[in-house]
Design a protein around this nucleic acid. Structure first.
Lengths: 155, 155
DNA sequence: CACAATTAAATTGCACGCAACTAAATAGCG
DNA sequence: CGCTATTTAGTTGCGTGCAATTTAATTGTG
């Protein structure tokens, strides 16, 4: 009744691999849709956070996005070069850098409003299904993060 | 009763973002677990395909993995440098390059057998749940690919 | 107050992932 | 058969992701 050990290597492929494939397929759709806005997918995620929260230090931005300064610093530099964002050393704490939208960056939000609808349509999922998938994925992420920390500590 | 348009930009974040986060969280767990084997996560995926199918041309490998030669060529070069794989021009069709396991590469499979169990444990999901998630993700990928092709053609 | 520990960004180095292009070989068509 | 179109890998260039290190500023402690 149980699965032969040798087959685990195939089964295994299907979990991680499906997720990986779905993530990249999403990237493909976003790439097409975001081309008009001149944004990459990760840049779009940064803009989403800024549109929602306004001004933020790099650290907070990273917490929202699960990214560190190694990724964000060059990305933000590109957004700044594109005129969408300004970066300013905080005067209160000179270690931190505040990221804020320029007028142009704030204005881009208007053109981005249609993106979610087009993405949702591309998935072919209804809202409930999306919600459930999201909940499951978030649970998965939490579990994986905990496990990674444990593995790292354990060895 | 319906969601305000402005909120779509937040809702949107949750679909693509959850997937992205889960995918990277997976990467984190794999990174820790695969360190012993000296493989990165994409390299592990390549090895999985080779363990299952034996010898393959780069093209077929790419079809299994959804990757093109732009990604595979340098990756395979690294696997070859690590002594896990050999690449040989096919004599039948000299455009194609056959990728085959070395003895060392084949032997690595033994040490990889425990990986899936550790990954499955890290997810905290049971087999049925994994299966269902996988099915959903595959459906999502198919829909997204179709939509990307359509978007591209339509514009 | 002085000084070690901590924190925030940035930088460096490496490995994808993908678009665009090149080079070489084969297939297919007139 | 000859020539173009297609196919297969490889290369280049760019943008992440992430580990590791560096620099500068701040916190906390004796």
């Amino acid at each position: 009744m149980s699965t032969p050990t040798a087959d685990w290597l195939r089964l295994d492929q299907q979990i991680c691999f499906s997720l990986n494939a779905a993530s990249r397929a999403f990237g493909g759709v976003y790439r097409v849709i975001l081309k008009d806005l001149g944004l990459t997918y990760p840049q779009y995620l940064v803009m989403l956070v800024l549109w929602e929260h306004g001004e933020l230090p790099v650290k907070k931005l990273g917490e929202h996005l699960r990214l560190d300064s190694g990724t964000l610093s060059p990305l933000l530099k590109r957004l700044e070069a594109a005129g969408l964002v300004r970066r300013e050393r905080s005067t209160r704490d000179e270690r931190s850098v505040q990221v804020r939208l320029t007028e142009e960056g704030a204005a881009l939000r208007g053109r981005a409003l249609e993106v979610p609808r087009r993405i949702a349509a591309a998935t072919g999922f209804d809202l409930d299904e999306i919600r459930e998938l999201r909940a499951r994925l978030d649970r998965l992420t939490t579990a994986l993060d905990a496990a990674a920390a444990e593995e790292e500590a354990g060895r």
